[in-house]
Write a protein that binds this DNA or RNA. Sequence first.
DNA 1: AAAGTGAATTGGTATAGACAACTATAATTA
DNA 2: TAATTATAGTTGTCTATACCAATTCACTTT
Lengths: 240, 240
Amino acid sequence: MIDKTSPLPIYYQIQEMIRGKIDSNEWEPGDMLPSERIFAESYDVSRMTVRQAVTELVNEGLLRREKGKGTFVLEPKIEQTLQGLTSFTEDMRKRGLKPGSKLVKYNLDNPSLKFAEMLQMQGDQQLYEIKRLRLADEVPMALETTYMNKELVGELPEDIENHSLYYILEAEKGLKLGNGEQTFESSLARQEEADYLDIQVGDPVLLIKRMTYLEDGTLFEYVKSVYRGDRYKFTIKMPR
Amino acid sequence: MIDKTSPLPIYYQIQEMIRGKIDSNEWEPGDMLPSERIFAESYDVSRMTVRQAVTELVNEGLLRREKGKGTFVLEPKIEQTLQGLTSFTEDMRKRGLKPGSKLVKYNLDNPSLKFAEMLQMQGDQQLYEIKRLRLADEVPMALETTYMNKELVGELPEDIENHSLYYILEAEKGLKLGNGEQTFESSLARQEEADYLDIQVGDPVLLIKRMTYLEDGTLFEYVKSVYRGDRYKFTIKMPR
DNA sequence: AAAGTGAATTGGTATAGACAACTATAATTA
DNA sequence: TAATTATAGTTGTCTATACCAATTCACTTT
C-alpha cells in the first residue's frame, strides 16, 4: 500500500490513501480512523509522518481531530462558494431548479475599439460574442453575454461550459487562470432585455459583470449578465 | 520573546510573533524570513517547532515557502474582500471616498413574531433595531437596518462598529462566529428609502441582506441594506 | 446506585538529528 | 569568455522518542 522507494513522499501517499477510502465510502462520515500510533505501526512509518498526512486533510476539512478521542471523518464540505459563483448551472441545481440555456447570438468578428482595449487584443485577432438566455425550469432568468478572445480559447462549440473550458485552457494550452472580479449593480430593464426575459421595460434587474483574468493579468473573459429582479436573488456564503 | 513556561504552545508564540512583525510592517511583503535553522537557534527551540509555526501562517496565506530559497512574506490576502464584505466603511475608503454614518432610528424592544423566530429569541429577550444612513463624501449611499439580539451582544452604543463588536463577542463573551451569508437582489425604491436616499420612488436599488451566524448555527445578526442603484456597484474579488 | 480513582488510549507539543531536493553563488575548467 | 563544477544555504521529508492533556472505561469505594 505504501511504497517507500517512490519519489512521492510517504505522507502524501498516506494522505491520498485516506482520501481514497473516504471517497469510496470505505470510511464514512462519523467513522473514527485508526489511531495515529496504530496507523504508524501498521504501515511501519513514524507517527509524525502519519500526523503530517492527517494534518493536511484536517486543513482541507475532510477530517476532525479530537484530543483524547480520535480522528473522525467529517461530513462532505459545505461548498466551494467562490467557484459556485461562476456557474449558473450549479447555482440553479442547488436551488432544485432545472437549469437550461438557449443560444440567442453566436458571433465571431473583429472587436470594437472598446473591447479590443479591454481585452488587450491585437487588430487581427477575433472576438467571440455569445449571447445566451438562461432558464430555470424553462423560465427565463437571465440574459448572459460572454466575450472571449479566440486567440486564447481556440475554437468554441456553441454549448460552451465554463467548467470544462477552464480545464482545457489549463491542461492543453498551459494557460494559468488568475483572479476574477464580479460586480453587482441594480438597474432597469432595457428593450432587448425586457423582450428576452419576458418583463416590462423599466422593471428592476440585477446586473452582474464578471471579469476573469489570467495569471499574468490579462483579461481572459468578460461576461455581462442581466437577471430578472423579481425572480433572482444572488447568494454568497462566507466562511470563517 | 518566547516563554517556555507559558501554557501557550511555543509554536503558537512564534506564530503570533511572526504575525505581529508582519502586521507592524517590520517585515514587509517580499521580505525573506530568517531561515528555519537560524530561527530555531536564535530562540533555542527545535527546527520542527519553527516549522509548525510557519506552516500555520503559510496555510493562512501570509507566508510563502520556496524550496532552496527561503520563506517570504506575501502580499496581503485578496480573500480579505470577504471580510470587507461586512464593512461599508472600509469599502468606501478603498474607493477613496469619505465614509459617514447618520443614525436614523435606534430602538430596543420585544421582537415581532417574525424576528423572534428568525433569531431564535425567547419571549422576554429584547431586539435591537438600528437604522443608519450610510454616506460617502456626505452623499447618501444606502439605508442600513441592523437587527441584533441584546442577549447576545449586550449593551450597544449608538455608533456600533462591527469590527470591534465582533472582537468583543469573541474575546469577552466567548462566542464563536461561524459562517455568514449575503444575498443580492434588485428592487425598486419604496417611499421611506426614496426619502432618505434622495431618489424617486421606483428608482432601482440594490438590496443586500446579510446574515451572520454563530458557530452553533444560531443567527446572530440580520442586516438589510438598500443601496442607490445609480451610485453603488458592489464588487467581489475572487482569488484562485 | 452513585461517586470517585486510576490506568489505558487518544491526540498535542517538542526535541535532535539525518538526508534529500533545490537554489544561488563562488570557484574551476575548457 | 563561457561553460561546468563544487559548495554552502535553504526548505522538504522522515525517524525515534518523550512527555503533556483530554477522554474513556473498568474498577473501587462510598
